[in-house]
């Protein structure tokens, strides 16, 4: 069944959409009250963030827009040393969208939220003219368990841990768009357990960041700039799957600049590096983690290449490729 403008009228059809799709899947005591606002109990300091998702195509190998929308916000909260607790979800649906498709997205969101231990406690739906597309905004609240984690907190001597292979999400989305058949799946995943395990193990974590748009290169440049340090990474330590490497070679892409949706870096005190690596490796989605470099005095990001040459790593300039998350 197709969604038309009447589903956004606020009347019967809107109610049906909320009841039969969103309440059915997001089902929790706070949302089910259907008040104007969710009323929440939280303790201590909170982290609070928002993100919007406009990906094309809506469904891809390894996930869909709903999974991205939950993981994106969960990960942003987790990177600040917070335990994600509550999300809101706003849907802007273009007329012509398939109701079953919307339900499938909602179902994925519910499953991902469950995995991440968060409740979707408030929501909104609008229907606009268009061609069957869907845009989702999520916002989220998390309770901070370690408060001094910051992009400006990197210190000389710190070690950089990357949680796994680069480029999978970007390559999966591009493959879908270009009609290329391969086995590359998006890495879209919630990273809350990796972050929590690092903190629970008492690792001195100075900075965490999920490696999304702009890629590792951009995140590391932000860390170097904000912390007033330089970053050195080692080319042969950076994990990229054989398939993604081949994909990049053909299209002239560089995994360092490609978006990921289930990867993070943790920048930790040098003496905690091995313990931190173990903590990431034993967490879901962290099995292929590596130590990829160190923080040094100076500025900018440099890479020691496989040939033992040196390469400057700048931020991503411009768009180059269409938006993919």
């Amino acid at each position: 069944m197709k969604i038309d403008m009447t589903y956004g009228s606020g009347g019967k059809q809107t109610g049906d959409l909320i009841n039969q799709v969103f309440l059915k899947h997001f089902n929790n005591p706070i949302l089910n009250k259907l008040e104007d606002s969710a009323v929440l109990s939280v303790s201590g300091t909170i982290a609070y963030t928002t993100d919007s998702f406009v990906v094309t195509p809506l469904f891809f190998k390894g996930g869909n827009i709903g999974k991205l929308a939950v993981c994106g916000t969960v990960n942003d909260l987790s990177m600040m040393g917070a335990i994600p607790k509550y999300l809101t979800a706003g849907f802007i649906i273009e007329e012509g969208a398939d109701l079953e498709m919307v339900e499938s997205i909602a179902k994925t969101m519910a499953l991902t939220a469950k995995e991440a231990g968060v409740f979707i406690v408030a929501g909104d739906t609008k229907v606009v003219e268009g061609n069957g597309g869907i845009f989702i905004n999520t916002s989220g609240i998390g309770e901070i368990i370690k408060g001094d984690i910051s992009i400006s907190g990197c210190k000389q001597g710190d070690v950089i841990i990357l949680s796994g292979n680069l480029g999978d999400h970007h390559a999966a989305i591009l493959s879908e768009r270009m009609g290329i058949e391969n086995e590359i799946a998006s890495d879209c995943a919630p990273l809350h357990t990796i972050a929590k395990n690092l903190l629970d193990d008492g690792i001195e974590v100075h900075c965490m960041r999920d490696v999304t748009r702009g890629g590792l290169a951009t995140v590391l440049n932000e860390a170097a700039d904000q912390s007033g340090v330089s970053v050195e990474i080692w080319e042969d330590a950076i994990p990229v799957s054989r398939e993604v490497k081949g994909f990049c070679d053909i299209l002239g892409l560089d995994p360092l600049y490609m978006a990921n949706e289930g990867k993070m870096i943790a920048i930790v005190k040098e003496t905690d590096a091995n313990e931190a690596l173990e903590a990431v490796k034993r967490s879901p989605y962290g099995a292929n983690a590596r130590i990829i470099g160190t923080i040094q005095e100076g500025k900018g990001v440099r890479m020691k290449t496989k040939l033992m040459g040196s390469r400057t790593i700048d931020v991503l300039y411009g768009e180059g490729l269409p938006r993919i998350c």
Partner: peptide, 15 residues
């Protein structure tokens, strides 16, 4: 151009 890019990416000028 792809060679130019690769020369930089592998740091050839520096070695």
């Amino acid at each position: 151009g792809t060679h130019t890019k690769s020369i930089f990416q592998s740091g050839i000028r520096t070695i």
